[in-house]
Simulated scan of single mutants.
Amino acid sequence: MTKPSESPGPPPEYPQYPQAPPAPPTRVPPQGRPEHDDLDYRHPMGVRVHYRARQRTADAAALGRLALHLPGFLTSLLVVLGTAMVGEVWLGLPAWVPTALWLVSGGLTFHRPSERFLARHLLRLHHPLPSELAVLTPVWREVTARAGVDGNRYELWIEDSDGLNALAAASHIVAVTRRALERLPEAQLAGVLAHELGHHTAGHAWTGLLIWWYALPGRLAWRALAAAVAGLVRVASAFSYVAAGVLIVLFGGIATATLALTYGLPLLLLPLPYLAAAVGRRAELRADEHAAALGFAPMLSRTLHDVLAEESRACEDDGLLARLLSAHPDHRTRLHHLQRYLADQR
C-alpha cells in the first residue's frame, strides 16, 4: 500500500470507501476462535487509501484533561524544585539542572524505545506471537484505512488478561487482551481497535501519559507525607492517646493556617478528581463516536452487550462515589450513545 500524492483541498474527516460484496474468508481461524460473523467490514483489495494530512489532533477532552491537571503539575514542579535545592546544598549541583531535566523528560512519551519499555515493564504487555499478529494485522489495516491513518505508525501489543478489553497508551501503543483476541470475531475486534485508534487520533493517549508522568512527583510526595503523619500518630498513640491527640490538633492547625494564608485556594483542588473523571468519561464516548463514524457501531455495540452480560452475571454494582470517580462510563451509557449510529445504518 503506497501513499498517493496529496490532492488539493482538505480531505474529509472520515473518508468513505465503496462497499465490497461479501467474500468468503481466505484463511482458517485459529483453534478456538469464532468464525467470521455476518458483519462484512472489509473492503476489496486494490482500494486506494488517502491518508489525512493531519492524522492526530487534541480534542476538547484532551485539552480539558491537561487544564484540570495543571495544579498537579505545579505541585510536582514545587516538589522537584525543592528536592533539587536540597541537592544543591548537599551536592553542589545547581537546582535548575535537575528541574530542567524533569521538565523536558515528558518528551520521552514520544520516544519509541521509551514507549516499549513502558509497555513491557509498566503496562505488562507482550509482543504478539506470529499467529496472533496474523489475526491482528489485517483487522488493524482495515480500521486505519477507513480512518485515513497510517497504521504502520503504531505498534500492536498483547495483554495477558481475561477481560474483553483493549488500551491505547503513549503515542504509538495499541494493545488488546488475549481473551479479546481469542474470543471476539474479527468484526467486533475491529470495532474495539477503532475505539482505541480514536483515543490516539484525538490525543487522549499521549495527554494521559503526560499527565501521569508530570503528576508523579507530587503524588509520591503526598503519599510520603500522609504515611509520615500516620506513622507519627501511631507512635504517639503507643505512648499516650493524649500525645496522639496533640499531634492531630497540631497538624489540623497547620492545615487551617495554610488555608487562611492561601485564601482557601487548596479547597479548589477537592472537586478536581471528579471533574477529571467526568472529562475522562467524555473522552471514552468520543472514542466510541470515532469508531461509530467509521462504520463500526454494530460491532462495538455487540461487544458492549457481551461485556454487560458478563457483568450482570457477576452482579457487580459500584456505588455512586465510585461511578463519579470512574474515568469510564458504564456500558449502558455507551450503548445509549451508540443508538443513533445504529439507527442511521438500518
Rank of each mutant, 00 (worst) to 15 (best):
S171R: 05
A145E: 06
V49G: 09
Q16I: 02
A228Q: 01
Y274Q: 08
E186Y: 06
V249W: 11
S312R: 15
N165K: 08
Y341W: 05
L193I: 06
A166P: 00
L335P: 09
T26G: 06
L184A: 07
A84P: 00
A215T: 01
P29S: 14
H200F: 01
T207F: 00
P98L: 03
P94G: 13
P298E: 06
V229C: 01
V89T: 14
R116W: 11
S171K: 00
W206A: 05
R183H: 14
R48S: 07
A287G: 13
G280C: 07
R48I: 12
L320Y: 03
R282T: 01
S131Y: 07
P12D: 13
T75C: 06
S7Y: 03
R27V: 09
L270M: 14
G46F: 09
T26C: 02
R42T: 15
A327F: 01
A292F: 02
P29K: 12
N152D: 10
T99I: 00
Q345C: 04
P12F: 08
V249N: 10
Q16E: 06
L63M: 09
R223L: 11
E182Y: 06
Y17T: 13
H195E: 07
T303G: 15
A309L: 12
A287M: 12
R282K: 05
E159L: 12
L304Q: 13
A226L: 11
G218I: 03
E186C: 00
A278E: 02
P113S: 13
A257K: 02
G107K: 02
L220H: 05
E35K: 11
L267S: 13
H204P: 05
H36M: 10
L321R: 04
N152Y: 06
H204W: 03
E132N: 08
V89E: 15
P18W: 13
L272M: 11
K3W: 05
